[in-house]
Design a protein around this nucleic acid. Structure first.
Length: 814
DNA sequence: AAGTAAGCGATTTTT
DNA sequence: TCGCTTACTT
């Protein structure tokens, strides 16, 4: 099994240059490769021909288009194993980049399985950011940092920006720091420094001060000796650009470069990669990017699908290998997914197939429910039924478009006593008490960390209020020293009142003591000591609120998780980069998560609720992203379906409560893009369909089996268009079934269209056709009397359902 | 400094 | 509508 690995040399760091393997592409190497191919080592024998080609094409640029479930990770890990076993590179000469820590971890583990002890010898396998940190710690001085720089998270960044906005004398309510943080992030994703941002962008914020503020922010980071996440990419880029000798060093070093999830790279990551990958002319670029354009779902946070689409132009002579043989899903699931994604334009074009055909495999099921409550109830029932057939809850997942959908399922599962776990959501290291504790630790390790200082200087309360902090802040800025240092000085003066001076004196003394213990005391012990002596633990012990015990528990957990690290510093770095905490694997539970966080996972049974226009595809994606927004939504749907191994159940409801108002909804257009042959509409004995749908036109989903006939005929399409327009009008007032298209009069409501498809229409504000006291009928709640009217929103006392607020388009005069 | 009142926004998320 | 953040009050 381990053939060929026993004689790999291992180095923690660089081997001596003359001991390097023969140059890639050389005759010797090719001969060796040929020999290896003949021998077909064990680790290659389990691969299909395409996978094997992806693994063995070591010379020159390679793009592996790996569809969902086609063994992408296997290819990557085996390729690394192959490089090592053929002696083409030492572990430290392979650069392997992933997006998430999870992916990096998984890759490390799997390479470990293949090559045993070599994993420790792969220092350059990690996320873009962790590799960036590694580069920066080595060359910090080249970008004006010290190598012990701190990494700020989003929360720190926002607080810092807020200070800067205030310092500029701007109103921080009119110009929210959070928004500006987002803008900076966007610029950094595009590899733009303050001088390079487009004039329009610069003007868009704070009366044209955008550029200034961005520059001020960067200056502040430098004085704080700190980086935000974007800098972890940008600083290395700048460093390479202005220090060709350093870049050359890494060119020589990295003989093979591998990139996972290439479709998710943003412009900065692309530049970073290109700098490292594009060597001198004539030298083969052994870069291998793996990705799937059909699974690009992060355009909204700066990912450029274009990077993968133009790979062949960027790397001339690139070999493109498609992996289309799927090992995960049934033919129905693949067929449904393929048909759906075929509606996108600008694809590289892959079609997944499987060799397994089992007549027992069920088709993808589409279910209709009356409202979200019934949807949750029905999914709960399905889950219980599967459970009765001894399916594991761990093998089931509910994948939602937006997190507000989760609640209904959680509520239902609580009543049923069904175990579930929510993936994503608020994370351990983002909790208040954890962040406070971390601020203490940070300040001990890095006395210049003003953000940490300000966070905890008066937590617990030490009588150091706003005025004191402001005085101290100004004092520090005037002398250009960190606040902790300023505090040390200021307590010698009489700038502060006696009470504040005493409080500050104690803080300074505490930190001085903890710092002196840093090298001598074991870090977990020191951490505990810090939390105790600072009074932080006591603060929560004295807190009577319901969450206090949980917070204390979290603090204990924090200390416990430090044990795995060698030092406080090492732990801090880990937390800055790896924000996730492990889930309890032992519990058998249904997973609930967003479609985005489901990427890369697989489940036996997948439930996809909420396939309604406006929710999925999401209205905002359409409004803000137009055609490409729609296509990204479609890719999201594709990701959702392809998570399923055996069963995929899609749901949509007719009524959903959005922002507290009940709204009638239309089945998602994606449902109509699913093929007959692999999809069936599930018979449900629920209330859906039992009601008259009063003038909303026919839908194939009104009938028991809409797939029987004409759902894709122009007639159906038109019917849906009618319904769509009619319903959208209900946001304003009802205007019948007129088909409104592009080209309204100047004064009329403006619609948005995507290639002629009507996607959104602004609300109109005509006076309501109802008056208080009217007797009305609502499809969901039945009869009732109007008790109040605000614009198009009616408050109605229903005979059975009680008081509800609904939009006037959904009721009729009774 | 804490507690209430008012206001705002409401996809998706990693590092 | 609801839940969270911020402002104002005591």
């Amino acid at each position: 099994m381990m053939s060929g690995f026993d004689d790999i040399p291992f180095f923690d760091e660089e081997p001596a240059p003359r001991k390097q393997p023969p140059a890639t592409g050389g005759i010797a190497a090719r001969a060796m490769a040929a020999r290896d191919r003949q021998q077909r080592p064990d680790y290659l024998s389990g691969l299909n021909p395409e996978q094997a080609e992806a693994v063995e094409s070591l010379d020159g640029p390679v793009l592996v288009l790996a569809g969902a479930g086609t063994g992408k990770t296997r290819v990557l890990t085996t390729r690394i194993a192959h490089i090592l076993s053929t002696g083409r590179a030492f572990p430290s000469q392979i650069l392997a980049v992933t997006f998430t820590n999870k992916a990096a971890r998984e890759m490390k583990e799997r390479v470990g399985v293949l090559v045993g002890h070599a994993v420790e010898g792969m220092p350059w396998l990690g996320t873009f950011h962790s590799i960036g940190v590694k580069l920066l710690r080595r060359h910090a001085e080249l970008v004006g940092l010290r190598s012990d720089f701190t990494i700020l998270d989003t929360d720190d960044v926002v607080r810092l920006i807020k200070q800067i906005i205030q310092a500029e004398g701007l109103d921080d309510k009119r110009w929210p720091a959070k928004q500006f943080a987002g803008m900076i992030d966007g610029w950094k994703n595009k590899d733009l420094d303050p001088a390079q941002i487009p004039e329009g962008d610069a003007r868009a914020f704070a009366n044209g001060k955008g550029r200034e503020l961005y520059a001020a922010y960067q200056n502040r980071l430098r004085t704080l000796n700190a980086c935000d996440f974007g800098d972890l990419l940008l600083h290395p880029i700048r460093m390479f650009r202005s220090n060709p000798d350093v870049l050359k060093e890494y060119h020589d070093k990295f003989r093979y470069i591998l990139v996972d999830e290439y479709q998710d790279t943003n412009t900065a990551q692309y530049m970073w990669l290109r700098l490292l990958a594009q060597r001198a002319k004539g030298v083969p670029q052994n870069v291998c990017c793996v990705g799937d354009d059909d699974q690009s779902i992060y355009g909204w946070r700066g990912a450029e699908v274009d990077n993968i689409l133009r790979f062949e132009k960027d790397f001339p002579g690139a070999k493109v290998i498609k992996l289309e043989r799927n090992y995960r899903s049934t033919e129905h699931i693949l067929g449904a997914a393929a048909h759906l994604i075929a509606h996108n334009e600008g694809r590289l074009g892959k079609t997944l197939f499987t060799e397994r055909t089992d007549p027992d495999d069920e088709k993808v099921q589409v279910h209709a429910a009356w409202d979200s409550e019934e949807e949750a109830r029905a999914v709960g029932e399905e889950i219980e039924q599967l459970q009765r057939k001894s399916h594991k809850l761990n093998d089931m997942a509910i994948l939602v478009r937006a997190s507000f959908q989760m609640r209904e399922f959680e509520d239902r599962f609580v009543t049923l006593g069904l175990n579930y776990r929510v993936i994503g959501g608020p994370r351990f290291y983002e909790r208040l008490e954890i962040r406070d504790a971390m601020a203490y630790f940070r300040l001990v390790c890095q006395p210049a960390d003003d953000l940490a200082f300000e966070r905890i200087v008066n937590t617990p309360k030490r009588g150091l209020g706003d005025t004191t902090i402001r005085t101290l802040h100004d004092y520090a800025r005037a002398r250009d020293v960190p606040m902790l240092a300023a505090a040390t000085d200021i307590i010698e003066t009489d700038e502060l009142k006696a009470k504040a001076r005493k409080g500050l004196f104690d803080v300074v003394a505490d930190f001085r003591r903890w710092q002196s213990l840093l090298e001598t005391t074991p870090h977990t012990e020191l951490a505990e000591q810090i939390l105790d002596e600072s009074g932080y633990t006591a603060m929560w012990q004295n807190d009577k609120s319901a969450e206090a015990p949980g917070r204390l528990e979290n603090l204990k957990e924090l200390i416990r998780s430090m044990e795995a690290f060698e030092s406080l510093r090492g732990f801090l770095e880990h937390v800055a980069l790896v924000m996730d905490a492990e889930q309890n694997e032992n519990l058998d539970a249904v997973s609930i998560m967003t479609l985005h966080s489901a990427k890369g996972l697989e489940f036996d049974t997948v439930f996809l609720p909420g396939w309604e226009e406006g929710l999925f595809p999401h209205q905002r994606a359409l409004d803000e992203g137009g055609r490409s927004g729609l296509e990204e939504e479609r890719r999201l749907a594709y990701v959702g379906i392809t998570r399923a191994k055996h069963r995929c159940h899609i749901w949509f409801v007719s009524n959903r409560r959005i922002h507290g108002l009940w709204q009638s909804t239309l089945p998602s257009r994606f449902l109509d893009e699913l093929p007959n042959t692999h999809v069936e509409v599930a018979e449900t004995e629920q209330s859906y369909g039992g009601y008259g749908r009063g003038g909303y036109g026919q839908s194939r989903f009104d009938k028991a089996d809409p797939f029987q006939n004409n759902y894709s005929t122009p007639g159906w399409k038109r019917a849906q268009q009618n319904r769509s327009d009619a319903t959208r009008d209900n946001w304003g007032s009802r205007s019948g079934h007129a088909v409104e298209r592009i080209g309204y009069g100047e004064s009329g409501p403006r619609s948005r269209t995507i290639d002629g498809e009507l996607v959104a229409k602004s609300t109109s504000t005509e006076p309501s056709r109802f008056t208080v006291g009217d007797r009305v009928f609502h499809m969901k709640f039945g009869n009732g009397n109007i008790s109040a009217i605000e614009g198009n929103k009616l408050t109605i006392d229903f005979d059975k359902a009680g008081q509800k607020r609904v939009l006037d388009g959904f009721v009729e005069k009774a």
